[in-house]
Design a protein around this nucleic acid. Structure first.
Lengths: 248, 248
DNA sequence: GAGTGGTCTAGACCACGAA
DNA sequence: TCGTGGTCTAGACCACTCT
């Protein structure tokens, strides 16, 4: 069952992407759209709210909505899953497990993932046949067995875990910064030691807030950038002081 | 005039931050909250939607909302304005203009900022008395005069332009990646050439979609990280292929 | 089956922008 | 002043979770 407002949003989005509503132009008023779709005004508002969070349109009280752009921000899944992002954008991609072992949780891990044993996995992923991403992932003990059951060249861990044990990665917290490549990073990604890498650290939980994994992902510089569209009134991202803030 | 749902959101947020609703616990149902605040259910839903976009609570159909965390994602202003971010987080900060000149728009600038003359400004900003950020900003011709009127050590350009000419930075598009420090970067930020910098490129527009500025901001590694909280159903961020993708 | 959040309606009033 | 989006109400039905 697709919601009414989703179908209205889809139709309006198509019109924007096709150029029927050019960038900079005004969208029809809520009343007009409600008439056109034979829907209540509230439903139309839900639809245009979707477009606003995608960064396609902006609004201010008293003036008509304006078309801001024609590129759409996309899903949580794409931020979380390399495979889903690559596939959605039509890239060739691959990946393989380099190393994998169980060990006791240490340091801050018990607080993040629960105490007891964890599963540590080192994965190298490629885009267009170039190695671009090195993932160091630590899985909580309760999913370790399911992860160990996956093939070494598993394309999408997220999807495989959903299909095998019904696990849903629902919430994520991400920290993005830049770090110099270490010896292992340099060897596996094919760059010089100390060269820049884009790092994404994340902790993911289930719907219930139960921690699933904690990961340190490093992208070769120039391979990938993160994109954000935002506006006054929408709050997707903040800066945070980094780990090394007062070191020299 | 503060909206009803904003006040309800504030009250619930305080309760979460104070620990009255611990992380992992369930929030009261919408019906209970509606009764407690003597508001319609729709108003309560607006309030908890605010908390959801802040990453504080998560929800699924059929189950009560769950408290996910106690740190709040914040505003567009903080992503856009270094000064506003630093002040909101209680850091000492400063900044000064290193160089500034007018020149004709070139390359892709006419498409982004409009043709004609633009104003190029190089600013160095510091946090806790350490230089951490080098901004290379290009302003559209129509704001150049206002920017030139600002003092060289202006703390917040965003706020100064609002107060002097009523200019509001309303929408932004941001690309975040890692780059090696160039000669000028290295000298001004006090790092070695080729060392990692976190780069944020952005284009900002007014409410009407009129471009204001385009900027290339580079942070010293370890000084700042970007943080995102997200969930299935919320769409703040995507990866994008970088400029150098097929270079070796 | 009871409870909960998700969707949708129909109508009202208000704050703001533009002419 | 008038049209627009922002807020709020009161009620309905549905999809889903939990037990």
């Amino acid at each position: 069952m697709v919601a009414r407002y989703e179908r209205i949003a889809d139709e309006l989005r198509d019109e924007i992407l096709s150029g029927a509503h050019p960038v900079g132009s005004q969208l029809p008023s809520e009343a007009e759209l409600a008439g056109r779709f034979s829907a209540a005004r509230g439903t139309v508002r839900q639809a245009v709210a979707v477009l606003a969070t995608e960064g396609l349109v902006g609004s201010r009280q008293g003036a008509r909505r304006i078309v801001l752009g024609r590129t759409r921000s996309q899903s949580f899944a794409e931020l979380h899953s390399f495979a889903q992002w690559a596939r959605a954008n039509g890239y060739r991609y691959g990946g393989r497990v380099i190393a994998q072992r169980r060990r006791p949780a240490s340091g801050s891990e018990p607080a993040r993932l629960g105490s007891g044993e964890v599963l540590e996995v080192l994965r190298l992923r490629s885009l267009e046949d170039e190695p671009v991403l090195l993932e160091r992932t630590v899985y909580a003990g309760w999913v370790a067995a399911a992860v160990e059951g996956l093939p070494a060249d598993c394309e999408s861990v997220t999807e495989a875990l959903y299909e095998s044990v019904g696990l849903v990665f629902a919430y994520g917290e991400h920290l993005i910064d830049a770090v110099p490549a270490g010896a292992q990073d340099a060897r596996l990604l094919g760059v010089r030691r100390g060269s820049p890498l884009l790092r994404q650290r994340r902790v993911t939980t289930t719907h219930e807030g139960r921690p699933v994994e904690s990961s340190d992902d490093r992208y070769r510089a120039g391979s990938v950038a993160f994109s954000i569209r935002n506006s006054i009134g929408a709050n997707p991202l903040v800066r945070e002081p980094g780990d090394l803030r007062f070191e020299r």
